[in-house]
Structures are given as structure tokens and as C-alpha cells.
Amino acid sequence: MKLRIKWNVKCFLCLVPSLIGTLIFFIIPYVRVLYYSFIDNQFRRSFVGLDNYVKTLSNEYFQLALKNSLLIIIIAVPILIISALIISLALSFGIKKLRALRTVFVLPMVIPTASAALIWVGFFSGVDSAFPVYLLFIWKNIGICIILMTAAFTNIDNSIFEAARLDGANRFILHTKITVPMIMPTIIFTVLLSIVNSFRIFKESYLYYGGTNYPPNHSYTLQYYMNNNFLKLDYQSLAASAVLTSILVLVIVIGGLIVQRRYRQ
């Protein structure tokens, strides 16, 4: 009994370094960010309620940034997931010989963003829409989705698949009714991961537009908004927009986890 407790304490101690780091670099400062979002400025520090939030939400650039960030989620993420699914299906069931191609699709993920963005500029010079950035995002993120999906497909019990095939189910029905639903938890995870990564394409976008803080309107995302406030040292609007963005991500992730849990039962 005593040994059991001792072991448990030791296991808990293993968590401590990570917890301390998270506390120092995230949790404690995040509480301060929350505090900043409710005061008027760094010096007077008087409480202003939701003023900063109202100001941020009614700021025209914040609205533009939010709209563009959501557009990526609505347009680019579904294209990404569906094409990753089709490629994974082809590589897992159709043309197994080409499985080695998986590694090619992963390459963009590990290739330095900076060099990719440079070439993109050459390809798409003169295109005046957010489309090149969407493509850059898909190009960059499809690899991890394919890896996770093919890994999940290989875990499917082959006998179910064969039985359905012998029953005369055609390929399309086979996949839509059996294989794809079976890896639903993984698909939900890739959707979640892609949504989160869509918030992260600032780097790609920033380099694509040649290191400017003011890209064309269609590509001005939340990240630009926050980056610019960072450079202006405008802590109040930065804090408010950081809190708003974190709430948005929190809702998306919790939603995803709940859907995933539902699928398991």
C-alpha cells in the first residue's frame, strides 16, 4: 500500500517540470492578459469592464481579420480534408504500390516555409485573391492528414472489407458506408488539427506578401491584426483579441472532442 502511494507520488513528480513551465510561460501570464483586457492602460490601470472587447469587436480591421480567418476554415479546410481523404483512400486501397508517394506529400510540411513562400510568389504573381494562400495552406498541411488517415486505414480489419466486397458492394458504397465511417475519430482529429493550423498560416502569408504588415485586404487575417498591435505595443486591444481568439479556438476544440467522443459510443 505504502509502495503504491510512493509510486503514485513519483509519477506525479514526473509531471512537475512541464507543469511549472506551462505555469510560468502560459497560465500566469494568461491571467495577466485577461487582466489587461479589462483595464484602460498600463499606467492608470482603472477597470473599464468590457470596453476593450467592444472596441475590438467594432474595430473594422478586427472584423475584416476575423472574416478572413473564418473564410479559410470554411473554404480551405474542407478542400484539404476531402482531397487528403481521396488520396489516402487511393493509396490505401486502390494503388498500394504507390504508398511510397506518401512521403512526397509530407515533404511540404517539413520544408522551410520561407523557401516555399518564395516560389509561390513566382507562380501566382498577379493573382489578386486569397487563393494562393489557401493553396499554400493545403499544400503545407495535406501531408500530415494523409499520414494520419492512411495509418488509420491500415488498422481496419480487412475481413469486414472483404466480406462487403464479396457481397457485391461497389467501391463508392464500400468507402462511404464502411471504411470512412470507421476512421471517423481520426478524420475529426484531422479536421480539428487543420482548423487550428489554419490559424497558423500567418507565417506563410507573411512571407508570401514579402514581409509586409499590411497585405491586401482579402488576406488580412487575425494574425496580422494581432501582430500589428504587438508592434504598436497596444496591449489592451492585443489582450482583448487574444482572449477572443482563444475563446473561439476553445469552442472549436471542445466541440471537436465532444463529437469525437460521440462517435466512439
Binding site: 502560459f26 501570464p29 480539428l192 494574425q223 487574444a242 479556438v249 472549436i252 476544440v253
Partner: peptide, 26 residues
């Protein structure tokens, strides 16, 4: 653990300000 997952999913633009404040204070 769910907190760790959520933190993992947070975009840089959310975590970078707390990171900055934490670093500045030390």
C-alpha cells in the same frame, strides 16, 4: 490532459503574448 490538448491547439497568436509577458517578467 484536456487542458494540454487545448493548449496544443492554441494558435501562436494566442500563446505568444503570454509567452512574451512571462519572458519579460523574468
Amino acid at each position: 490532459f484536456v487542458f494540454y490538448i487545448i493548449l496544443m491547439m492554441m494558435p501562436l497568436q494566442v500563446t505568444i503574448l503570454p509567452n512574451y509577458i512571462g519572458l519579460r517578467d523574468i
